[in-house]
Nucleic acid binder design. Structure first.
Length: 641
DNA sequence: CCATATCGCTT
DNA sequence: GTACGAGCGATATGGT
């Protein structure tokens, strides 16, 4: 079985915004090294492809049974970009196209299974596991910065046109070599091959780590855990290539409204500031606000930042509005809060516009966002999401309008929705983390409450307050306690969030099985520094923070369950005649896109989503809703499972 | 040019 | 006995 590690160097991090690979390096198990490079036009930053080199890459890589990457999510997309094919079509370049996913390995995913806590960077790992120095990275970064300075100085002298210098140093790794070729007298000699030797070291690192990690996974009995993550990697690439439809015209209109609001509030605020004798003021500066609010205006300090300075955040402003209704500068607080809300939304929208990719279907223009799902982005097996972050799109704040109707402001999910001719099915797990908590603690009362479909917070409220009919306040307290506990809060914090002294102690008395479980996990973390999910995923937890153990287990189980659900549903939809596709994951929610005129296999998908937890004997119910206009407007569906 | 602080959004 | 978890991204600020 022949194995080769492959790495690409690129002109940026986002292939959809123009980044391309300009170098491919490879290293096999025998230590044979390969490299291919492409010239770059410094003006357009486009690579100059040539058939011979592409053919040589293809033929070389096809010799090998197994391909190893460090972050295959990135490099597979780089290869797709290089060959101008879809990421799914990269399998056709492989020796075993139909068994492609049995032959792809990723030391990044391996690293997370071996140690969720520490960095997964290739250089860090090589220092840690192989004692392989990382000075080549510093050399390349220094050379790149120096080359950029040379470019700037030549441009100032008018000797070269305006080459756009990228924001990230990593995106200009090609520059030293180009400058060496173009200006041999001005360039440093090391620039000729500094990138190449760096890139070759990276594939040496990758193949060595692969060999070591495979043995470590085997000896720790976690090879199966890692292979499940490889299954998920395929889903991630599918989701990323599909993207989410972005209602760009709506976004542009909302943004323009926000900008006028920002102008209006800025003017109102500035006139107040001027009355304090200040000509200049930046409302986005916490330091300036601290000084103005607490020294000039003499508002009382009601909360402090981590570093012990007076807070200026929204909750503090609201607190001050509530507690100082007669203060002469109360208007300032009200306007400031509105300004901050508008500013926040406008920044989010500008970011979405930055990443919006136009495409044309028929006559209509579409805009799509293609967020990255980072499979090793968290320490608990959850995904993180970036460029843009599709997992923190605002769901809006509920407020009452003039007529007393409840409305949602700043709901940015309204900027997303199915393209014409399609609908979305958003299916989420109900109270997933709490259900996991109940099963992990093995509290039969809680488990039964869920099984019977009771309101969980009501159930806990009944126990806490020893009543059959908890009031709304009692339910709210129970809910706060429930969530605080899975977040690892201590007595003081639980009492504070519950708004009730002694809530923590009361819970411990009324739910002794849960209390015992939490103590057991704490002990385990102090002793071993590790917990394990119900699906065998090992998670290191800092020994000095043993209270985090329960949360790691709960979030870890959640990650395992939802990832497996993604694998099962994505596979089902690709194997069965269906135009429906999984397009997004938001921790406990999967979003599917389906043509309007096709039936969505709702019941089957829900069953598949409940399957992974069923494997360990847990029942994790789901709820579904339908999106026909935009994501801020969901209609709950009846499920008949 | 880089690190820290603060803030605000999600589950 | 102690202790709210996990993220991304924008902006300001001060030191290198």
């Amino acid at each position: 079985m022949s194995i080769i590690a492959i790495d690409t160097e690129t002109t940026g991090l986002n292939f959809l915004l123009g980044a391309e690979p300009f170098m491919v390096t490879a290293c096999d198990l025998e230590g044979n090294l390969f490299y291919w490079e492409f010239d770059i036009d410094p003006i357009t930053k486009k690579i100059k492809r040539n058939r011979t080199t592409l053919k040589d890459i293809r033929e070389t890589l096809r010799q090998y049974d197994d391909w190893v990457f460090h972050n295959a999510n990135f490099d597979l997309r780089a290869i797709a970009t290089l060959f101008e094919i879809s990421v799914q079509e990269v399998s056709k370049l492989h020796k075993h196209p139909d068994a492609f996913w049995y032959h792809i390995h990723d030391t990044l995913l391996m690293s997370h299974v071996l140690d969720n806590q520490r960095s997964h960077g290739l250089k860090d790992l090589s220092v840690r596991y192989l004692q392989f120095p990382k000075d080549d990275e510093d050399q390349l970064k220094d050379a790149t910065k120096a080359a950029r300075r040379l470019v700037r100085s030549l441009h100032r002298k008018g000797e070269i046109p305006d080459w756009q210098i990228h924001d990230e140093t990593e995106a200009d790794y090609w520059l030293p070599r180009l400058m060496f070729k173009a200006f041999p007298d001005l360039a440093q000699p090391s620039w000729e091959n500094v990138c190449l030797s760096y890139a070759l070291k990276d594939v040496e690192r990758t193949i060595s780590l692969y060999t070591l990690f495979k043995d470590l996974l085997l000896s720790r009995d976690t090879l199966g855990v890692y292979l499940r993550e490889i299954n998920v990697l395929k889903v991630v690439l599918d989701i990323q290539s599909r993207g989410m439809n972005f209602l760009r015209p709506v976004a542009a209109s909302v943004l323009s409204d926000l900008d006028s609001q920002i102008d209006a509030y800025s003017q109102k605020l500035m006139s107040i500031v001027n009355s304090f004798g200040l000509e200049e003021f930046n409302f986005e500066s916490p330091m300036q606000l601290q000084s103005l609010l607490y020294q000039e205006m003499k508002f009382p300090v009601v909360s402090l930042t981590d570093k012990g300075k007076p807070s200026t955040d929204a909750s503090t402003l609201q607190h001050l509005i509530n507690c100082c209704p007669d203060h002469p500068n109360i208007d300032f607080l009200v306007y400031l809060k509105e300004l901050k809300l508008n500013l926040t939304s406008s920044k989010y929208i500008r970011n979405y516009l930055h990443f919006a990719i136009p495409s044309t279907k028929g006559k209509r223009n579409y805009y799509t966002l293609y967020p990255n799902l980072n499979q090793t982005g968290t320490k608990t097996t959850r995904f993180s999401c970036s460029n843009p972050n599709g997992q923190n799109i605002s769901t809006g704040k509920e407020e009452e309008d003039d007529t007393g109707h409840k409305i949602k402001r700043f709901n940015l999910r309204e900027l997303f929705g199915p393209p014409p001719g399609y609908v979305w099915y958003a299916i989420d797990y109900s109270s997933l983390q709490l259900i996991i908590f109940a099963y992990e603690a093995n509290d039969q009362g809680m488990i039964d409450a869920f099984a019977k479909g009771y309101d969980f917070h009501n159930y806990v409220a009944k126990g806490l307050f020893n009543t059959q009919e908890p009031t709304k306040t009692e339910r709210r307290i129970a809910k706060n306690v429930n969530y605080a506990l899975i977040f690892g809060a201590g007595a003081e914090r639980v009492d504070a969030t519950a708004g009730m002294d002694g809530a923590y102690q009361l819970y411990q008395n009324q739910f002794p099985i849960v209390a015992e479980y939490m103590a057991k996990i704490s002990y385990q973390v102090r002793k071993t520094g590790q917990v394990k999910t119900a699906f065998g995923y090992p998670l290191n937890v800092p020994r000095e923070q043993p209270y985090k153990g329960v949360n790691y287990i709960v979030q870890g189980d959640e990650g395992n369950i939802v990832k497996q659900a993604m694998y099962l549903t994505n596979r089902y939809l690709s194997l069965h005649p269906s135009k429906s596709r999984l397009i997004m994951q938001i921790h406990d929610e999967l979003v599917f896109e389906c043509p309007k005129d096709k039936d969505f296999p709702l019941s089957t998908i829900c069953q598949l989503m409940m399957g992974p937890a069923r494997e360990v004997g847990w029942t994790t119910p789901v709820g579904a809703s339908l999106v026909t206009t935009h994501w801020g407007d969901k209609k709950e569906l009846e499920l008949d499972l």
